[in-house]
């Protein structure tokens, strides 16, 4: 089969788990990320875990000038690309973002504008191949305006809408756009936060994502109970949302 997969954000958390899931299937991988030394370590890990090969190049989500050259390097190393996964992003709690305006600017920009700009670069290349999947990690935080994720959720809401539009516009052209909406997942990003019920592990999310790409699904909630949890939360009247803590 030899899948060819690019992962932006594979050194940690869910990106690491997703890259490992593809490595275990014998894929050829190419990693994008901020820190070269970390990329080299993750590439070695993925080869040990079954990846046919694994290249990498530096790419900072906060600097759009990196995007085109990094993707050029990845596409020219892999040839035809099957999947481009974007798990990179910034996270901070509502309290952290309220206290620190410059952090808020960074998070809002990285998780919306910069991610969208990166996806645009990917979109052009995958459309050029007339096939391929763009898999982007958004969040259940974008499903509803909620007290603990007002700012972060707003960026993710914008991102989710963008991915939805992209899917509608280009599915017929051979581009599969998958919006991944993880619920609470135990990673270093959520470290120190009280895990709610249905908290998941990165490996579960990775499995769900690989399956969704295979089946051509435009949207994945993971772990699966979050689809129903969010269904309920989306249906709650605003008067209720104003009162509850989540």
């Amino acid at each position: 089969m030899n899948e060819k997969v690019i992962v932006f954000g594979a050194t940690r958390g869910m990106g690491r788990a997703l890259a490992r899931a593809y490595a275990a299937r014998g894929a050829s991988l190419y990693l994008l990320g901020r820190n070269e030394a970390e990329l080299a370590r993750s590439a070695a890990d993925l080869v040990a875990r079954g990846a046919r090969d694994c290249g990498y190049v530096r790419c900072d989500l906060e600097d759009a000038r990196d995007f085109a050259p990094a993707l050029d390097a990845a596409f020219s190393a892999l040839g035809q690309v099957d999947v481009v996964a974007v798990t990179a992003g910034l996270f901070a709690t509502q309290e952290e973002l309220e206290k620190d305006r410059s952090l808020a600017v960074r998070v809002l920009q990285a998780d919306f504008t910069q991610t969208v700009l990166f996806c645009e670069e990917v979109k052009d290349r995958l459309l050029g191949q007339r096939r391929g999947a763009l898999v982007v990690f958004s969040s259940v935080a974008g499903e509803r305006g909620r007290k603990p994720v007002v700012l972060y959720g707003a960026a993710k809401a914008g991102l989710s809408r963008y991915l939805e539009g992209l899917d509608h516009r280009h599915r017929a052209d051979g581009l599969l756009v998958v919006a991944v909406k993880p619920g609470f997942v135990r990673t270093s990003m959520t470290e120190g936060l009280e895990p709610p019920p249905f908290a998941g592990e990165p490996d579960e999310v990775a499995r769900d994502v690989v399956r969704a790409v295979e089946r051509g699904l435009p949207e994945v909630y993971s772990p699966w109970p979050w689809r129903y949890v969010m269904g309920v939360i989306r249906a709650l009247p605003r008067a209720v949302m104003r009162r509850v803590k989540f």
Partner: peptide, 9 residues
């Protein structure tokens, strides 16, 4: 337990 990469094999 999150530091679990194989660096060389």
């Amino acid at each position: 337990t999150l530091a679990d990469r194989i660096l060389a094999f």
